[in-house]
């Protein structure tokens, strides 16, 4: 992500969500205007990257999965029935491709090492590779607290909040639907996952977040 995130996300203001912009980008691409799609690639690539990495895909392979997800989007630009669902389509496509990479990798490993407890039929069971809290990254007590609190949430809540945080405007409606946790039709409410994170943070002490 760039360094231009100093400003708080404009959570209350009117305007388009990432899901809306994705829909517009696809519609314009179909009409021959490629500019908006380029903007979408810039904006949503971090979401795809972290989605793919959360499935346990290594660095180099994850780069190719993200790239081929964008290629798949333009190849299928005319067949995606509902432009409103394009952000979901991107996240699901990236996730599927990531699972495929993980499955192949496991098959290869199995061929090489014959591990008896390997279970390639359950690639989704692979735990996300959460980096351990790193002193370099988690310099501030506040950041350590935030990261540890996040780890206390159910896995899909963690995934949802990571992705939502990366969108420049919290966009529960599309992202939560994309990872199978519909949050209702209103895009700007807190939702259970964030409410729980706030609750845990609150229990940890009196920190100012703003």
């Amino acid at each position: 992500m760039t360094g231009s995130r100093e400003a708080l996300p404009d959570v209350d203001g009117p305007g388009l969500t990432l899901g809306d912009r994705a829909a517009i980008a696809l519609t314009e691409y179909r009409e021959g205007n490629h500019q908006a799609l380029g903007d979408l690639v810039r904006e949503a690539t971090p979401l795809l990257w972290h989605t793919v990495r959360a499935q346990g895909v290594d660095h180099d392979a994850a780069e190719d999965v993200v790239q081929s997800t964008w290629v798949a989007l333009v190849r299928h630009a005319d067949s995606i029935a509902e432009p409103k669902a394009v952000l979901k389509w991107l996240l699901v496509t990236a996730k599927r491709a990531a699972w495929e990479v993980v499955r192949k990798h496991r098959d290869d490993e199995k061929r090489r090492t014959e591990l008896p407890d390997d279970s390639p039929e359950h690639p989704m069971a692979l735990p996300a590779k959460d980096p351990l809290p790193d002193d370099e990254v988690l310099r501030e007590e506040r950041d350590r607290l935030l990261w540890m609190s996040l780890q206390k949430l159910p896995g899909r809540c963690q995934e949802l909040l990571r992705l939502v945080s990366l969108a420049d405007r919290p966009d529960y409606r599309y992202i939560s639907a994309a990872i199978g946790m519909p949050m209702g039709s209103i895009g700007s409410t807190r939702g259970r996952c964030l409410a729980k994170l706030r609750t845990i943070l609150d229990e940890q002490g009196d920190f100012s977040w703003t």
């Binding site: 935030l146 919290p170 703003t210």
Partner: peptide, 13 residues
């Protein structure tokens, strides 16, 4: 505060 937590989280991620 929700916005600030999410912004901080994005930076950590």
């Amino acid at each position: 505060d929700d916005g600030a937590v999410l912004t901080r989280l994005a930076q950590l991620v």
